[in-house]
Simulated scan of single mutants.
Amino acid sequence: MQYRQLGTTDLNVSLIGLGTMTWGWQNTQAEGFEQMDYALAQGVNFFDTAEMYAIPPTPERFGTTETIIGHWFAARKNRDQVILASKITGPGLDWVRGGDNHINKKNLTLALEGSLKRLQTDYIDVYQLHWPNRGAYHFGKTWDFAPDFDAVAERENFLEVLNTLQGFIEQGKIRHFGLSNETAWGLMQYLQLAKDHNLPRAVSIQNEYSLLCRHFEPDLAEIALSEQCGLLAWSPLARGILSGKYLNGAKPAGARLTLETRPEHRTGKTVDDAAAAYIAIAKRHGLDPCQMALAFVNAQRFVTSNLIGATTMAQLKSNIDSVDLKLMPEVLADIAQARREFAQPY
């Protein structure tokens, strides 16, 4: 396993991070235990979860994944071997805290206490804001995103959040904090306010990134590198689309997009054509398409950890093994050409 420094901290996290959101829906607790056991044995020391998991989110499944991880910690007695990240849910789900779920001191406190209890731990290493209060271009909103907010009010909220997080750090309940599904403006505001007021500095930003979704480049990538606030890349296989299993309208039994109850924006001819192009590149060079896609993410200097997710042990093992794959220049050249043809599939 390879490791990279988490922001400006003294923590080194595994380049392959373990995503957990299928546990409690697509995966049983026993299967989650098996994945965690195997990943840790392979040197994966960074696990990422969230209070709203398992996915797709429902009131009944809220917190289920964290509960499974908590049971694993209790059974294995190995909390100190894992760098654990979790998240507070942003506004938008009317069944989370009665629909009044603006990220502020009150809700941060409620959310953190709930997560700590479910996870059966005294602290979370990286506590993240799942998405911003003001909205962003993620989750299929790229095409019609139109920022409309009060910048002064947002900065005041950011200061409230940072002061609250400082309190959590002083209490020993979290070690660091990170952002998720943020924009360049939001990330820079948080970093500047932390500097100006001697408050906690974001150590990471968790956004979607894959061969099919490269919105992180170039602006956020520049910030990640220059400000030492690296990317935790989620959905590096674009919800499994880069495996090819959904091509031509296929809906494999038990697969993520087959079970998904929410509208899916990663569909259509352009997405299919782009995925097929990348799969063809992998096959032309004798590579597994999923490992090639993951190796591409691993190779980016602005990436701190590549958050894989798997529903089977075979998938998990193959995904972790991608850390040993180095893409040759001719493969990267083909990928660059395909990107020009399919610059923004969704």
Rank of each mutant, 00 (worst) to 15 (best):
A221Y: 09
Q5I: 07
A280I: 05
G230Y: 02
S243P: 09
G43N: 07
G244R: 10
G186M: 11
V126A: 04
Y127I: 08
K106L: 10
F62N: 12
F139R: 11
A277V: 11
N12W: 14
T89S: 13
P252N: 07
L159N: 01
L247M: 01
S180N: 11
S180I: 10
P147A: 06
K251P: 00
Q42A: 07
G17W: 11
M52N: 07
T28S: 15
P59T: 12
A338N: 08
F33N: 02
E60R: 05
L15R: 15
Q26W: 03
I335M: 08
L187A: 08
I320D: 01
N45I: 08
P263W: 12
A280H: 06
G268M: 11
L259W: 01
V96G: 00
D321V: 00
N107R: 05
A336K: 10
V161H: 03
Q42G: 04
R97Y: 14
Y127E: 04
S14R: 09
D122W: 13
I335Q: 08
S180Y: 07
T142A: 15
E113F: 05
E208V: 12
A275H: 06
T8W: 06
Y190R: 09
S86F: 01
L193N: 06
S115M: 08
T49H: 01
I335V: 14
M292C: 08
P289H: 12
G99F: 05
G7Y: 08
A250Y: 01
A233Q: 03
D219P: 00
W23H: 13
L242A: 06
R201L: 09
G19S: 13
Q120R: 15
H130G: 06
I223R: 02
D100C: 02
A250T: 00
L18M: 15
G286M: 05
H102S: 07
E60V: 09
F47G: 01
R256V: 03
P289M: 11
Q228G: 00
T8S: 14
A238S: 14
V331P: 06
L257R: 12
A39C: 02
L187G: 01
N45K: 06
F62R: 10
M36A: 06
L325W: 04
D48G: 03
L193S: 09
E208I: 10
Q228A: 14
K245R: 13
P59S: 11
A275I: 04
K106F: 03
W131I: 12
D125V: 10
L232V: 09
R266M: 13
A30R: 00
E208F: 04
P236F: 09
G70I: 11
V161G: 05
P329H: 03
R262E: 10
H102Y: 12
K195H: 10
E60L: 05
F47R: 01
L212Q: 06
V13Y: 10
I335T: 09
K326W: 00
K245Y: 06
N298M: 05
T258N: 02
E31S: 13
Q337D: 14
R4A: 12
Q192C: 03
A41N: 08
V13N: 13
D148I: 02
F47K: 00
L84I: 00
T270Y: 07
W234N: 02
W25D: 15
F296S: 00
I279G: 10
